[in-house]
Design a binder for these strands. Structure first.
Length: 571
RNA sequence: CGGGGUGUAGCGCAGGUUGGUAGCGCACCUGUCUUGGGAACAGGGGGUCGAAGGUUCAAAUCCUUUCACCCCGACCA
């Protein structure tokens, strides 16, 4: 490609609304332009990179036996009503009406559509297993879109869906996707981790997330310092290894805590550590109110609560419900004398003479003790794991790192096939629901996270597989015929070799060409200058290197190609 | 949805309190000169000051309404 015939509108300054590096650099490198909050145009350079990722994904999917198709982005409400998600999915689902006032939505995911397709055509076990996928634009009306392509509302996603005859077969399909995903992210040159995850709103029995490790990530990844266990913080289990409190129990007392609403406020008023306070949360578990207690410094994990009760929806109770059930506002709730079932986190076992809300506004009880003053209905693992917690697998210590979720695979089971009546006949002629799995990769998010992981002060440093161009050829004197001729020759020769090259044929000063080549992150730079060329030499410099090496112009193509291979193999 | 902030040239910003002909840097156009790290000089083009309404002789500036965008939080009691 000739720069002068292409469109790469680079920006010298950082756009005011770009917060994270990937967003800033994509905007500055002329890859994307924002149209509305969370909605971006993909400019030519950005599109090339997106297509690179798509192609890698496509190759890995096909290799794993998945078959590509494309489903509509607009979906009728009826399908979503059938699966029960029209009411359940919430505001993230962008709902629209057509001219006949019929309800539609812009698809945030395609379980319904694919299930509808498969149930229409596949009626026999003989046609299974099958795995269908698409690469397509999705829309999720995020509460707070941010960070450019990292959390956009419109984004490109690869979604695959597998259908199997039974559980064992479904596990094989799942494993194939797991392996394929590893290949995808390795080829993209990303440092990533797979973690056990909670299946969340999509549902299903188990799932894994693929996390790109980066400080700007919005997810917390728990990993063990001595074994290879890792999980999303929502999932990571905790041991009940607490030694019961055995100190002297002091006399229980009521104390005034006016206006205190949070643990830290109570701690300040009572002049005690937050760890000596019991936090009581009133939750709505499938319509029933339940109180969950955790140590003041811990956080309740709703996913764990949900799993403990086998519930489908767990939410915080509203202020009114809290008052009606506990007799006080949320900030003064406690387990002593509570009229709803109270459950406690394991870690409370070790606490003694702690403080709890008195279920009277502005009053707390101090020197409360489990067993003497109240009992839990049951105790369990109800909190988020924290740094230093004990790994249940090996006894090592948990650590926390931040990650960007770029892939998520779910074993769905029969959630959709049952609700949508998607059945096949097995080898005994019996009707059975398909065992499903679904598998997503955020293509545009992969691009953003690749930049988060690979950049410096000057700009992007593309992993070779994702680079929009592998080599930039910079003739530094466009009015010098020798320089231009030499550059042209190198350019044409590299194209003949099938290499993606960008020839910067603009009549710009050297500095401008250098800056743009660095900003756009092209892995290898070939510089043709007047003086060096007069000595029969040109310069070569990898994007990751700080020094250029001079090579002889004669026979330079082989040297350049060799250098490129060297860079590619290092990744 | 709650709190905070910002909308002025393609981009980054000043001006606003004290109403009086809309400015700076970058980018863009013309010319000279330059050519290995975002050159210099000279000249030039480009704005319904987010939108609507109001106050006033006069509004980017004051008042009201509204829209958009950004940040923090959005369930942790």
């Amino acid at each position: 490609m000739r720069y002068s015939k292409f469109f790469i509108p680079t920006l010298r300054e950082v756009p005011a609304d770009a917060e994270v590096v990937s967003h800033q650099l994509m905007a500055r490198a002329g890859m994307i332009k924002k149209l509305a909050s969370g909605i971006y145009s993909y400019l030519p350079l950005g599109l090339i990179v997106i297509k690179k990722v798509e192609q890698i994904v496509r190759e890995c999917m096909n290799e794993a036996g998945a078959i590509e198709l494309t489903m509509p982005s607009i979906q009728p409400a009826e399908l979503w009503e059938e699966s029960g998600r029209w009411d359940f999915y919430g505001k993230e689902l962008l709902r629209i009406k057509d001219r006949h006032n019929r309800d539609f939505c812009y698809g945030p995911t395609h379980e319904e559509v694919i299930t509808d397709i498969v149930k229409s055509y596949i009626t026999s076990y003989k046609a299974l297993p099958i795995n269908l996928y698409q690469i397509q634009t999705k829309f999720r009306d995020e509460v707070r879109p941010r960070f450019g392509l990292m959390r956009g509302r419109e984004f490109v996603m690869k979604d695959a869906y597998s259908f199997d005859v039974d559980d064992a077969a479904a596990n094989i399909s799942y494993q194939k996707m797991y392996d394929a995903y590893c290949k995808v992210f390795e080829r993209c040159g990303l440092k990533y981790k797979t973690v056990e995850a909670d299946s969340g709103a999509i549902g299903g029995s188990f799932s894994h997330e693929f996390m790109v490790l980066a400080d700007t990530g919005e997810d917390f990844v728990i990993s063990c310092d001595s074994c290879d266990y890792s999980a999303n913080v929502e999932k990571a289990p905790l041991k009940n290894d607490h030694v019961a409190f055995s100190g002297e129990m002091k006399a229980i007392e009521d104390v005034e805590t006016p206006n205190a609403k949070t643990v830290s406020e109570v701690a300040k008023i009572l002049n005690i550590p937050e760890g000596d306070i019991l936090k009581t949360m009133v939750l709505d578990v499938d319509g029933k109110l339940v109180a969950i207690c955790v140590k003041g410094t811990h956080d309740v994990n709703l996913a764990k609560v949900k799993n403990y009760f086998g519930a489908s929806v767990v939410d915080l109770a509203g202020a009114g419900e809290v008052f009606d059930s506990m007799g006080s506002p949320a900030g003064s709730c406690g387990p002593v004398g509570a009229k709803i079932p109270v459950y406690g986190d394991f870690a409370i076992t070790a606490m003694g003479n702690f403080s709890v809300g008195a279920n009277v506004k502005g009053v707390h009880k101090i020197n409360v003790n489990l067993g003497r003053d109240f009992e839990f209905e049951d105790m369990g693992d109800f909190r988020n794991a924290e740094i230093g917690d004990t790994c249940t697998a090996c006894g090592g210590k948990y650590q926390i790192t931040k990650g960007i979720e770029v892939g998520h695979i779910f074993k769905l089971g029969t959630k959709y096939s049952e609700s949508m009546n998607a059945m096949f006949l097995d080898n005994n002629g019996k009707r059975k629901p398909f065992i499903m799995g679904c598998y997503g990769i955020g293509v545009t998010r992969v691009v953003a996270s690749a930049i988060e992981q690979n950049h410096d002060e000057s700009g992007i440093i593309w992993p070779v597989e994702l680079a929009p161009f592998k080599i930039s050829v910079l003739p530094l004197a466009m009015k010098d015929k020798d320089v231009v001729d030499a550059a042209e020759k190198i350019y044409m020769d590299l194209i003949d070799k099938g290499i993606e090259v960008l020839l910067d044929d603009r009549d710009e000063r050297a500095g401008v060409k250098f800056k743009d080549a660095e900003l756009t992150g092209i892995p290898l730079r070939v510089v043709i200058g007047k003086k060096t060329l007069a000595e029969g030499k040109i310069e070569l410099r990898a994007r990751t290197e700080s020094e250029a090496t001079e090579i002889s112009f004669d026979g330079c193509i082989d040297t350049i190609v060799q250098k490129l291979e060297e860079i590619a193999s290092k990744a």
